[in-house]
Amino acid sequence: MPEIDLRSRSISPQHNVYFVRPGKNYHLYQPFVHSEAIIADLPFLELQRGVALEEQASVINRIHRSRAIRNWYRGDRENAFPSRDLSVYPDNVRDLGISQLKSVVERYFSEAKKGDLVLVIPGSITSDAYIGELTGEPSDIITLSYEYVYNNEPLQGRKVKWLATTKKNLWPILY
């Protein structure tokens, strides 16, 4: 097993370590690394910065809308561009996909605390996996956009301080 030096940092039982996948086909890997952030692969989620997730309005509707917009950009274009009006989206979990996305939102913006560690795994076996520490509270939501990711649709996430890197191919468990 490879050795990773986190500058002799010990991880207390109160801290968690999260494996974070940077989007389908790892398309958010470069934005994660360069923005020093983990980013939910949910365009136009529109959570309010500084507001706890449990106090955010219409979270499930927002997830449905984000998934519809994301799917449209990924090629599901049988219909017109999805509505941005939250009232047209259901406010309940209707399928496994929404349930999984709800879990991502809860982990990013509620469960993962300041100081918890994240491991971002690259798609390429020879690329670096990044180990980082969440630098803000769960409600310290950042909003970013990239022309090459969902045509500048806003994406939200959390800031990270990168602590170390390691080659993915040194960790057989990661691939």
Rank of each mutant, 00 (worst) to 15 (best):
M1P: 11
I4Q: 00
D5V: 03
R7C: 11
R7K: 14
S8V: 00
S8H: 07
S10D: 09
S12P: 01
H15A: 08
V17T: 11
Y18F: 14
P22W: 03
P22A: 13
K24C: 07
Y29F: 14
Y29T: 04
P31N: 03
F32I: 03
F32L: 03
S35I: 05
A37I: 04
I38K: 00
I39Y: 00
I39A: 00
L45R: 05
E46W: 08
V51Q: 09
A52E: 15
A52Y: 13
E55P: 04
V59N: 05
N61D: 08
I63M: 04
H64T: 05
H64A: 06
R65P: 04
R65L: 07
I69S: 06
I69Q: 07
D76C: 11
S83H: 01
S87E: 14
P90K: 09
G97H: 12
G97N: 11
S99H: 13
Q100D: 08
L101Y: 13
K102E: 15
K102D: 14
V105H: 03
E106H: 10
F109W: 02
F109T: 03
S110E: 12
S110T: 09
E111Q: 15
K114Y: 00
L117G: 01
L117P: 00
V120T: 10
V120L: 05
S124F: 13
T126G: 13
S127W: 14
A129C: 15
Y130N: 06
I131H: 01
L134E: 01
L134T: 05
T135E: 14
G136Y: 05
S139A: 11
D140N: 10
I141T: 04
T143V: 10
S145R: 14
S145A: 10
S145M: 07
Y146A: 04
V149M: 12
Y150G: 02
N151Q: 12
N151D: 13
G157P: 06
G157M: 03
K159P: 00
N169V: 08
N169Q: 11
N169L: 09
L170W: 06
I173S: 15
L174R: 04
